[in-house]
Amino acid sequence: MTTKSPDQDLIICRCERVTLGALVEARRAFDVSSGRELKLVTRASMGICQGRVCHAALEALYARWFPPGRDVARPRPPARPVPFGVLPSLKGDDADG
């Protein structure tokens, strides 16, 4: 039987309840090669806050685990969650984005 060190239970992503231990285990189990890959297999930072709370902690881990240049975090719309009901009133302007 293996004993887990207590920090393995540390919650990194609150929205999706992803612990440090889950990230460590997924990185090993899936032979993950970048932060984006790890995000997609664990859902870390993919919840309702979209990483606004956990991105600093995640980026520190990614920097330790993966070579530089593999994780270009791209801000994506919306800047914060909004009801779908507001989308139809968006201006149809092709120049934005």
Partner: peptide, 8 residues
């Protein structure tokens, strides 16, 4: 209309 849009 009331559901939350979080990402595109």
């Amino acid at each position: 209309a009331h559901s939350l849009f979080i990402r595109a």
